[in-house]
Simulated assay, not measured.
Amino acid sequence: MEAEKLRQRINELGAKRKKEGLTEGEELERQALREEFLENFRKSFRSQVEMMQVFDDNGKEVTPEKVREIQRKKGLRDD
Protein backbone atom coordinates (compact mmCIF):
# COMPACT_ATOMS: atom_id res chain seq x y z
CA MET A 1 0.00 0.00 0.00
CA GLU A 2 1.20 3.54 -0.70
CA ALA A 3 2.83 5.14 2.34
CA GLU A 4 0.41 8.07 2.60
CA LYS A 5 -2.69 5.88 2.23
CA LEU A 6 -1.24 3.44 4.73
CA ARG A 7 -0.66 6.23 7.25
CA GLN A 8 -4.15 7.64 6.69
CA ARG A 9 -5.82 4.27 7.23
CA ILE A 10 -3.81 3.65 10.40
CA ASN A 11 -4.89 7.07 11.70
CA GLU A 12 -8.54 6.41 10.79
CA LEU A 13 -8.51 3.16 12.71
CA GLY A 14 -6.72 4.81 15.63
CA ALA A 15 -9.34 7.57 15.83
CA LYS A 16 -12.16 5.07 15.60
CA ARG A 17 -10.53 2.95 18.30
CA LYS A 18 -10.48 5.92 20.68
CA LYS A 19 -13.99 7.05 19.79
CA GLU A 20 -16.02 3.86 19.65
CA GLY A 21 -13.70 0.86 19.61
CA LEU A 22 -12.75 -1.53 16.83
CA THR A 23 -14.14 -4.84 15.71
CA GLU A 24 -11.84 -7.84 15.85
CA GLY A 25 -11.31 -7.59 12.10
CA GLU A 26 -10.44 -3.91 12.30
CA GLU A 27 -8.01 -4.55 15.14
CA LEU A 28 -6.26 -7.22 13.06
CA GLU A 29 -6.17 -4.86 10.07
CA ARG A 30 -4.70 -2.11 12.27
CA GLN A 31 -1.96 -4.41 13.54
CA ALA A 32 -1.11 -5.61 10.03
CA LEU A 33 -1.00 -2.04 8.70
CA ARG A 34 1.25 -0.92 11.54
CA GLU A 35 3.63 -3.81 10.86
CA GLU A 36 3.72 -2.91 7.16
CA PHE A 37 4.37 0.74 8.02
CA LEU A 38 7.23 -0.17 10.37
CA GLU A 39 8.74 -2.55 7.82
CA ASN A 40 8.70 0.19 5.17
CA PHE A 41 10.17 2.68 7.64
CA ARG A 42 13.00 0.32 8.56
CA LYS A 43 13.84 -0.37 4.91
CA SER A 44 13.90 3.33 4.10
CA PHE A 45 16.02 4.17 7.13
CA ARG A 46 18.48 1.36 6.39
CA SER A 47 18.82 2.59 2.81
CA GLN A 48 19.54 6.13 4.00
CA VAL A 49 22.21 4.93 6.43
CA GLU A 50 23.80 2.71 3.80
CA MET A 51 24.07 5.63 1.37
CA MET A 52 25.62 8.10 3.81
CA GLN A 53 29.17 9.34 3.95
CA VAL A 54 30.52 11.07 7.04
CA PHE A 55 33.26 13.72 6.94
CA ASP A 56 35.11 15.39 9.81
CA ASP A 57 35.77 19.14 10.10
CA ASN A 58 38.94 18.79 8.00
CA GLY A 59 37.11 17.13 5.11
CA LYS A 60 38.48 13.64 5.82
CA GLU A 61 35.98 10.84 5.35
CA VAL A 62 35.22 9.06 8.62
CA THR A 63 32.35 6.84 7.48
CA PRO A 64 32.14 3.78 9.77
CA GLU A 65 33.81 0.70 8.27
CA LYS A 66 30.64 -1.35 8.62
CA VAL A 67 28.78 1.14 6.38
CA ARG A 68 31.72 1.24 3.94
CA GLU A 69 31.64 -2.57 3.65
CA ILE A 70 27.91 -2.55 2.88
CA GLN A 71 28.49 0.15 0.24
CA ARG A 72 31.27 -1.96 -1.32
CA LYS A 73 29.02 -5.02 -1.49
CA LYS A 74 26.34 -2.95 -3.23
CA GLY A 75 28.83 -1.51 -5.69
CA LEU A 76 28.49 2.01 -4.34
CA ARG A 77 32.14 2.36 -3.36
CA ASP A 78 35.40 1.63 -5.21
CA ASP A 79 37.91 1.75 -2.35
Rank of each mutant, 00 (worst) to 15 (best):
K19S: 12
E36Y: 02
K73N: 07
G25Q: 11
R68V: 13
I70H: 02
E2P: 13
E20P: 03
K19R: 13
E20L: 10
K18F: 15
K19P: 05
G59P: 12
Q71W: 08
Q71N: 07
E4P: 00
R77K: 07
D79Y: 01
M51I: 03
G75Y: 03
D79Q: 08
R46N: 09
S44V: 06
E65P: 00
E20C: 05
Q31D: 08
R17L: 08
M52V: 13
E29V: 04
K5A: 15
G21N: 04
M52D: 03
Q8C: 05
I70A: 08
Q31R: 04
R68S: 01
K66W: 13
G21D: 05
E50F: 14
P64A: 11
E29T: 06
G25E: 14
D57Q: 11
E50M: 10
E26G: 05
V54R: 00
E2L: 12
E50N: 13
G14V: 13
G25W: 00
L6E: 10
D57F: 11
E29W: 04
L38A: 01
V62D: 01
A3M: 14
V62F: 09
I10C: 03
E26Y: 10
F41C: 01
E20T: 15
E2Q: 12
E39T: 02
R68H: 07
L76A: 04
K73D: 04
E39H: 09
A15I: 15
I10L: 10
Q8K: 14
V67E: 09
R30W: 12
Q53C: 08
M52F: 05
V62R: 08
D78L: 12
E61Q: 12
K18M: 14
L33W: 09
E65D: 12
N40R: 14
L6H: 07
K5Q: 13
F41E: 05
A3L: 15
K19H: 06
R68G: 03
E2N: 14
E4L: 15
R17Y: 10
G21Y: 04
E36G: 04
G21L: 09
I70G: 00
T63W: 15
K43N: 06
M52Q: 09
L76M: 10
N58G: 07
K74R: 11
Q48T: 08
S44C: 00
K74C: 05
K19N: 08
I10K: 00
G21R: 06
D56Y: 12
D56S: 11
R68F: 10
E61A: 08
V49H: 01
K60M: 13
K43P: 05
K66H: 10
K5S: 14
L6T: 05
V62A: 07
L6V: 07
G14T: 15
R42I: 00
F37D: 03
G14C: 05
L38N: 06
E61M: 10
D56G: 08
Q53R: 14
K60N: 14
T23W: 05
E20V: 15
L76S: 04
K60I: 15
E24F: 03
L13A: 03
L38E: 03
S44G: 15
E69G: 00
T63C: 13
F41V: 09
F55Q: 02
V49S: 00
L33A: 02
E26R: 01
N11A: 15
I70N: 03
V62P: 02
F55R: 06
K16M: 05
Q71F: 08
K5T: 13
E27K: 10
K19Q: 11
K66S: 09
